Simulated scan of single mutants.
Amino acid sequence: MKRTVEEVLMNYRKCTERIIQLLEKDDIESLQSELEKRQDTLNELISYADKKDETREIYKKLNINKIENEARELMKQKALFIKEKLKNISKNKTASGAYGNIGNSPKIFSKKI
Rank of each mutant, 00 (worst) to 15 (best):
L80D: 09
R18K: 15
Q77P: 00
K52Q: 09
S47T: 13
D27G: 08
R56V: 00
E17D: 07
E29D: 12
G103Q: 11
L74G: 06
I64M: 13
M75D: 03
L23G: 13
E7Y: 02
I113R: 13
K87Y: 05
R56Y: 01
K85S: 03
E17A: 04
S33H: 08
L31T: 09
P106L: 13
N63P: 02
E24H: 06
G103A: 15
K107M: 08
L74K: 15
Q77A: 09
E73F: 02
Q32H: 06
K78Y: 01
Q77T: 13
S110F: 05
R13D: 10
D27V: 07
E54T: 09
S96P: 00
I64W: 07
R38D: 08
E17H: 02
F81K: 13
I28C: 03
K2C: 03
E29N: 09
K2A: 10
S47K: 14
R18E: 14
K93V: 11
K60S: 15
E54A: 03
K87N: 11
R18N: 15
K25W: 06
Q21H: 14
A49R: 11
I67Q: 03
L80Y: 02
I28W: 07
Q39H: 08
K112W: 06
L31Q: 11
R3M: 13
L45A: 07
S30F: 08
V5E: 05
L31Y: 08
R38Q: 15
K78N: 07
I108C: 00
N43Q: 11
A95F: 14
K83V: 01
K14I: 08
Y99H: 08
S110H: 06
M1S: 10
R3H: 10
A71R: 15
E57W: 01
T94F: 11
R18W: 05
A95H: 10
L45Y: 04
N43C: 00
R72T: 04
D27E: 12
T55C: 04
V8P: 07
K37T: 05
G103P: 00
I46D: 11
E6T: 13
D53V: 05
E29K: 13
K25V: 03
L42T: 11
N101Y: 09
L35G: 01
N63V: 02
K52T: 09
K66R: 14
S110T: 14
Q39E: 14
G103T: 10
E70T: 14
L35K: 08
M75R: 14
L31S: 11
A79I: 10
V8Q: 12
I108H: 12
G103N: 13
S90V: 04
Q21C: 09
L80W: 01
E54I: 05
I58N: 02
T55L: 10
L23Q: 15
S110W: 03
I102G: 11
I113C: 04
K107L: 07
F81N: 05
I64F: 07
I82V: 13
A79P: 00
N11C: 08
T16I: 05
A95P: 00
Q21W: 07
S90R: 12
E57K: 15
